[in-house]
Each structure stands twice: as C-alpha cells, then as structure tokens.
Amino acid sequence: MSQAAPPGQPHPARTEAHDPAAWREGFKTGLPTLFGIAAWGLVVGIAMVKSGLSPVQAVGMTLLVFAGSAQLASLPLIAAAAPIWVIFATALVVNLRFVIFSALLGPHFAHLPWKQRFLLGYVSGDMTVAMFLQRYPTAERVAGKLSYLKGLMYPNWFAWQIGSLVGIFLGSAIPSEWGLGFAGTLAILCIMVPLIINSAALCGVVVAVAISVLAYGLPYKLGLLLAVVVGMVTAMVVEETFAKRKAKHV
C-alpha cells in the first residue's frame, strides 16, 4: 500500500528530484572502474559466442541476464546440454548475492515506486552497490542520494553492454590460442578480491574453493552450485557467530 502524503506536501515517492551535482559525483566515483567493467564484458561476450551461442542469442543473454558470473557459469552447462533446471539453479545461486545487495539498498529507497526500484535492481552491480554503501552507510534521507546511485549504476551498465557487444561481434575473429578464458578468470578475481572485506566473507570463499575442488567430478558442473551454496552458508554462520560474540561483550 502506498504511503499517503500529508495535505499540502508532495507524495514521498515523488520527492527525489534529479541532482546533477550528485550524479556527476557518482559518475566520477565509478569512473575508474568503467574500463575494467568494459573489459570484463568483452571477455564474457567472446565466451558466449565461443561457447556456441549465436550473436542474437548472446545479445539477448547480455541484455536480459546482465550478470557476468552467472553467464559464465551457465555457458558450460548450456554447451553440455544440461537440464534447464540445472542451468537456472546455477545462475540463481551464483546471483544470490544480489538478494543481499537488495536488502542493503532497500532501506535507502523503499519510498520509491516499485517500477523504479525494479529498474535500479536490474542495473545494479557488485562494485556500484559497494561504492554507494561506502558513500551512504546509513539509510538516512539525504538529498541527491538517488542521483548519486544513478551516476554509479547507469554508466556501469553502459560500459558492460558496450564491452559485451564488442566481444560478441568480434568473438569469431579472436583466435582460441589467445587464452581469453584465463583473462575471464583474472577479471573475476579482480572484482571478487575487493569484496572480501571481513573474516566471514574470507571463510566463505575458502570453503567454496575447497568444495569446488572436491566436487569437481560431479556431472553438469554441479560442484560449482554446491560450492556456492556451502560457501554462502558458511559466511552467514560465521557472520552470525561473530555478531553474537560481539553482542555478549557489549
């Protein structure tokens, strides 16, 4: 149910005026990451066509999915003709971190119309959410907050799509000997390492790596799915344990 506005005041969902200065601030904050995002999109675009997708299918995937890690996790499953539920489950689990991102951003923008929140959720990315929360760690209503977020997210989305589209349409001309699959691994590491910000996240990563190695032989790359699930559960348990210990000492 939408929140009613007091007499003589605008509806709270329509009080977010565009702030050019805040937008430019967000853009400048995210600008150093745009080249890396475009390069990462380029690698994923090449990987899609190298995996057997047609250019039309690859363009549809990059526009609809817009999640490099989920796309890369799905490609070998598609190539192996895995059951559709395995492909969807793998992509879902790989992207579960965005549920956490949404929970973190929710208090900041719960007053916005659901269509606008849906669009912001679609264009959100790992680094953009992290940079926004560094700038605005609390959910206090501050003028220009939405414009700052858009200044981070929209250029990030365009950089990814441009890189991905270039990779899709030039992928057939890239020799396999260039080893761009390894470049994709390096790109994932560059994005992942800054996100390991505490002991809980580190524990989750270590456990996920161990599980992925031990479960490597499972069919349809299910070892990846298992590693992500166990890693996330581990990080949550460790985080909860640390929180309880901290509460006891307060």
Score class of each variant (00 low, 15 high):
residue 99 V to I: 13
residue 247 A to L: 13
residue 126 D to G: 07
residue 149 L to M: 13
residue 192 M to Q: 00
residue 118 F to L: 15
residue 243 A to T: 12
residue 162 I to M: 10
residue 10 P to L: 06
residue 43 V to P: 01
residue 24 R to M: 11
residue 235 A to L: 09
residue 222 L to K: 09
residue 54 S to Q: 07
residue 203 C to Y: 10
residue 50 K to P: 03
residue 136 Y to P: 02
residue 181 G to L: 10
residue 152 L to W: 02
residue 134 Q to D: 13
residue 131 M to H: 03
residue 225 L to N: 10
residue 124 S to L: 10
residue 158 F to I: 13
residue 189 L to D: 00
residue 192 M to D: 00
residue 217 G to A: 09
residue 57 Q to E: 15
residue 153 M to V: 06
residue 130 A to C: 07
residue 213 V to G: 01
residue 182 F to W: 11
residue 219 P to Q: 11
residue 2 S to T: 14
residue 232 M to C: 10
residue 103 A to P: 02
residue 205 V to F: 12
residue 193 V to P: 00
residue 159 A to M: 00
residue 217 G to C: 09
residue 134 Q to N: 12
residue 42 L to H: 03
residue 193 V to F: 05
residue 205 V to S: 07
residue 2 S to P: 01
residue 114 W to Q: 14
residue 139 A to K: 04
residue 65 V to C: 02
residue 197 I to E: 14
residue 43 V to G: 07
residue 128 T to W: 11
residue 3 Q to E: 15
residue 13 A to D: 11
residue 127 M to S: 15
residue 219 P to V: 06
residue 39 A to V: 15
residue 175 P to G: 10
residue 152 L to Y: 04
residue 70 A to G: 09
residue 155 P to A: 06
residue 55 P to K: 09
residue 5 A to H: 02
residue 1 M to S: 12
residue 104 L to S: 14
residue 74 S to F: 02
residue 214 L to W: 13
residue 193 V to R: 01
residue 96 L to T: 04
residue 60 G to V: 06
residue 197 I to T: 14
residue 10 P to D: 04
residue 182 F to I: 10
residue 52 G to P: 01
residue 80 A to S: 14
residue 7 P to H: 08
residue 95 N to D: 04
residue 20 P to T: 08
residue 24 R to D: 00
residue 152 L to N: 03
residue 153 M to A: 15
residue 27 F to S: 05
residue 226 L to Q: 10
residue 127 M to N: 12
residue 143 A to G: 03
residue 11 H to K: 04
residue 76 P to Y: 10
residue 108 H to G: 05
residue 150 K to A: 09
residue 57 Q to G: 13
residue 195 L to V: 02
residue 130 A to T: 05
residue 73 A to V: 05
residue 14 R to H: 12
residue 103 A to S: 13
residue 62 T to W: 00
residue 83 P to I: 12
residue 44 V to Q: 03
residue 58 A to D: 08
residue 13 A to G: 10
residue 164 S to P: 01
residue 117 R to E: 04
residue 172 S to D: 15
residue 208 A to P: 06
residue 131 M to S: 11
residue 64 L to G: 07
residue 27 F to R: 02
residue 175 P to H: 09
residue 216 Y to V: 11
residue 205 V to T: 14
residue 48 M to R: 00
residue 114 W to R: 14
residue 114 W to N: 13
residue 85 W to S: 15
residue 97 R to P: 02
residue 226 L to Y: 08
residue 41 G to K: 04
residue 56 V to N: 04
residue 22 A to N: 02
residue 201 A to V: 03
residue 201 A to F: 09
residue 199 S to W: 10
residue 41 G to N: 07
residue 52 G to D: 02
residue 245 R to T: 02
residue 59 V to C: 08
residue 232 M to F: 12
residue 53 L to G: 12
residue 211 I to M: 12
residue 68 G to P: 03
residue 173 A to Y: 08
residue 212 S to P: 01
residue 109 F to H: 10
residue 38 A to G: 07
residue 61 M to G: 01
residue 17 A to S: 08
residue 141 R to P: 03
residue 129 V to N: 07
residue 181 G to V: 11
residue 146 L to Y: 03
residue 209 V to M: 14
residue 225 L to P: 10
residue 240 E to G: 01
residue 116 Q to Y: 03
residue 202 L to R: 10
residue 109 F to V: 06
residue 69 S to V: 05
residue 202 L to W: 06
residue 217 G to E: 08
residue 77 L to Y: 08
residue 17 A to H: 08
residue 233 V to E: 04
residue 241 T to W: 13
residue 55 P to H: 06
residue 244 K to C: 10
residue 175 P to Q: 11
residue 55 P to E: 07
